[in-house]
Design a protein around this nucleic acid. Structure first.
Lengths: 332, 332
DNA sequence: GTGAAAGCGCTAACAG
DNA sequence: CTGTTAGCGCTTTCAC
């Protein structure tokens, strides 16, 4: 295997021209059945593997869909990437993922590598870089941005409707009679901000007393925050954690302290995807439309024209399980 | 932006030959400083982006490192992919990840796409396909297999030393005086099997009473198993869960039932990477050498020759935190 | 049906 | 230092 066999090798072996092998292999123009068989046999005999690089250089296109991921460990984006990949597969595209590691240099590098594939399109999953830096790199590549709203991106942006999600949380809890809700937030990220802001606005609108406690998007953040709440003696009747992982931490701390859920305190999570903890922990939560995001992204990339591609915010849905219940009547 | 500018466009604009632009851009042969400046200016003016596809076709190599990942959502493999990516970056390579979605067709497709890049090498992260199917696709591409031991792969295999990890668990617990340990297993996967088997062997060697309870690699598996243990009234003094996520579920169930950790029961986790729950939950665990795996993989790919590349099993290390303690003295 | 010729955008020897 | 000449492996016209 000192040198990969080329089309010419196959052609020579089969006693035909290179062009014929090419067309036969791609099944485009008509080739005599007997010749095709001979060619196929030759391919196998020679051990031919098409060089997709050359193919894409010659044809000017490829069946690749590029995905720019901040980092494989972010479960949310990884789940979206997975959804994109599944839908791309179904459309006959191969997904190639590059990670930017949250740095501008890394993302630049990744996008360059991705666009170099002359891909059918690129999906940006929560890029770090500013739009001005990204757009020139993308050039004419059909691009959709997920989660971050990039106005100039050719095929528009797909975002989550955080306000709708937060509304589901507040209305569910308020509907159960809770007059005071504590939000354990997700720290300083963009979505943590959005959720916090929406929470404040929504509770006000619902006439519910809001309280914000600093936390993070992981189990330890929820655990720590709940313990702090416990220590401060400021336990509300309802807690909404920034996501399901944090909510698991809250449950842990609460149960450790002998607090009953949902008897004494109702707990809600939000949006987690990998852990699927919700089911077994009976966590009431808000489910994000991950699959729909992936599907829409691929559809937009594949759409022949770029009409109707503004920013769309997909709506999440409420999943009621056992961790929330009626607010306990004050003993007073 | 109807057509991407090429080297020729830049050359014409700068009034030099295409070759000169090429060499200037790559910084190889010497180019007059003044000319280089002119060329750089021309690039910017024309908006030139190098076509890496053409470059790799012409030069016969690329700076890509391919990674075949079963699925982005598997936190362990995703973490390894991340480590590989970081070390590859440091070596000046771009990592391109393709997922096989656990199907043979998917993996075949992914590997084809990866090898088509003429990458510096390919890292296989727990492939599903049989070795016989994989090897011909890889051809002469330097390849290392992580986690699954593929004998025929050119740059060898890197695996985890599960036995060593399990030994750490059993010895730690036995050293604390526990005479009986319950393992909540990870179900039917390969590593779940390895751990279970090693556990049985090791406990026997240590003179400890083993007990196995069916579970899974997630929080719900641990939660469910611990509740079953509780219900059956067969609570041991020490529980070892298949991984940290499962251990979190165990903690949850135990605390919910008013069992003290580590006062009544010691709990150990294993190998989790993303959640980093260990820290805040004070979970005693076994840490896998994720980063070392990534580093070694890249080193092997970059090594000029393929000597010394048999299978290596990297050793994990014990991380003692607060969830384990001396076995309680029987009240009897 | 089949094949010859002309590139895709770039790099790799060589000459000047 | 700079430019010329050949391709890399494949797809595309467009003749035969």
């Amino acid at each position: 295997m000192t040198k990969a066999p080329t089309l010419d090798d196959v052609a020579r072996y089969a006693g035909v021209s290179r062009t014929l092998v090419s067309t036969a292999l791609r099944g485009k123009g008509r080739v005599a059945a007997s010749t095709r068989l001979r060619i196929l046999a030759a391919c196998k005999a020679v051990g031919y593997r098409p060089n997709l690089t050359a193919r894409s250089l010659a044809s000017g296109r490829s069946s690749v869909l590029g995905v720019l991921l901040a980092d494989v460990l972010n479960t949310f984006f990884a789940a979206v990437a997975d959804a994109v990949s599944r839908h791309a597969d179904q459309a006959g595209l191969t997904t190639l993922i590059a990670t930017g590691q949250h740095t501008e240099a890394g993302e630049r590098h990744a996008v360059e590598q991705l666009t170099a594939q002359r891909p059918q399109g690129v999906v940006l999953l929560g890029p770090t870089m500013a739009e001005e830096g990204l757009l020139p790199l993308l050039g004419a590549t059909p691009t959709v941005s997920i989660s971050r709203v990039l106005g100039g991106v050719s095929r528009g942006a797909i975002a989550l409707d955080e306000e709708a999600g937060v509304r589901l949380v507040v209305e569910h809890l308020a509907g159960l009679g809770h007059r005071s809700i504590t939000h354990i937030d997700g720290g300083s990220g963009v979505s943590a901000d959005e959720r916090r802001t929406a929470f404040l606005a929504r509770t006000r609108a619902a006439g519910v007393q809001p309280q914000i406690f600093p936390g993070s998007f992981d189990i330890s953040g929820g655990y720590r925050a709940a313990r702090a709440l416990l220590a401060a003696g400021r336990l509300p009747t309802a807690i909404w954690a920034a996501n399901d992982r944090a909510a698991a931490g809250v449950l842990l701390a609460l149960r450790e302290a002998g607090v009953r859920v949902p008897g004494d305190v109702s707990v809600m999570g939000y949006d987690d995807v990998t852990m699927r903890a919700g089911t077994e922990l009976h966590l009431t939560s808000v489910r994000q439309p991950i699959d729909a995001m992936g599907q829409l992204a691929v559809e937009r990339i594949l759409a022949p024209d770029a009409t109707d591609v503004g920013t769309v915010r997909l709506e999440p849905s409420l999943v009621v399980r056992g961790s929330t219940g009626p607010a306990p009547t004050p003993v007073s």
